[in-house]
Design a protein around this nucleic acid. Sequence first.
DNA 1: CGTTACGTTGATTCCTATCAATACGAGTGG
DNA 2: CCACTCGTATTGATAGGAATCAACGTAACG
Lengths: 236, 236
Amino acid sequence: MQTAIHPRRHAAHCSNCAMRHLCMPEGLTPEETEKVEDVISATRAVRRGEALFRTGDPFDSLYAIRSGSIKSVVSRDGGREQVTGLYLGGDALGLDGIGENRHMSTAIALEDSSVCIVPYARFERVCRETSSIQRRLHQMMSREIIRETNQLTTLGTLRADERVARLLLDLSARYTRRGYAAAEFTLRMTRDDIGSYLGITLETVSRTLSRFQQRGLIDAHGKLIRIRDFDGLRAV
Amino acid sequence: MQTAIHPRRHAAHCSNCAMRHLCMPEGLTPEETEKVEDVISATRAVRRGEALFRTGDPFDSLYAIRSGSIKSVVSRDGGREQVTGLYLGGDALGLDGIGENRHMSTAIALEDSSVCIVPYARFERVCRETSSIQRRLHQMMSREIIRETNQLTTLGTLRADERVARLLLDLSARYTRRGYAAAEFTLRMTRDDIGSYLGITLETVSRTLSRFQQRGLIDAHGKLIRIRDFDGLRAV
DNA sequence: CGTTACGTTGATTCCTATCAATACGAGTGG
DNA sequence: CCACTCGTATTGATAGGAATCAACGTAACG
């Protein structure tokens, strides 16, 4: 697979990026956004199935998704792997690499995607100069912690159908904030990935979606999902 | 319950704190450690069962454990709650509060404990002045992300006995780094807490420990655990 | 248009939750 | 000092949910 890296002068800037309100510039002034922009060295295209980075790779950049979607996976002893995160446009990847100076997970594109490359050393320097940008980085890291805490409660307390319902509602909310329809979207992950993400098997995912459909909660045609009864899903 | 807060001049300093090599000063020079020290406004005693902070409390400080141990819990709809973290001496608490300016979990002492209070605004300022301290904060946050990712794989892929074994080995490793015996320690959590942390019921925890004992892997007398066969536990 | 990855559905097994009863143990007060 | 009590822990019986094993559709891609 071929990776296309575009130097910054060819890359779109934050100021005209569709994701700017969800991405690193969130809450920053235009001047501060420009400082963030100056850190971004390039964009990179990642094709479906390709890895943006892998466990053990030296860490030197964070990534922000411009378009597409990316899953993070960690391999466990014995080839088995677990999906630990699902990232959409505007989301930041690679925060887990800071602690050990190497990436602690593998990031794989779920569809052809594009990311901004944020060299970490330069970003840290900018954070020291501008407290609002510093605060924004800390906020992003903290929110990643909160996201994982949430996922822990999903895996720790919910039954299979509750987990699937929660995922659908979560995706709906996230797509809504990105300007897409709340009720209709395409699952980018396979049933296997979804099961791994939710701590259940792919068969259980499939059966659960079928049951939701029978009960009139959703329409599901393969990866295309239409939510027909939000309250019903919340009450699962 | 009465909370004792001691202003800094009465508090021990990092330089003579037993936890300094695991705590915030990890990897910092004595001069840098002193800058961290200057941020710490006070220490606080937290009695067994008492909350250091609760979900929804305004966030203004991080905490570092001087002695004792603390669990973090999040309440889910319907009064049910899940243990999401277990923190020992030197560990930092409260990182999940940065993102939303209020605490997103409740921290409850598992035994009489003592923490250093680290006012966040001041700490951020010091991070802007000293890059090594900045890097240390980022490292702590990143490691919290990694810790949760790990816990996600535990809840997502392991069977009950594997989860319990992993917890025992994890605690052993953490106590070892704190200078305690690797093979013998006291579980500070009840069976209920352990079950919640591991996503299983308290009965399963109890049964699993009994089975481990029958197989000669451990000695368990209530909360006191002695590991007799590390490799056996790893192979569960 | 065939090959391959992905998805659905069924039958069965097994692990863990649930329900229930009992034992233990630390702290309290008579 | 001992009885009492409440929170905690152990153990058993049973039920249920999800995993596993298996077969068959279905869709995507070269």
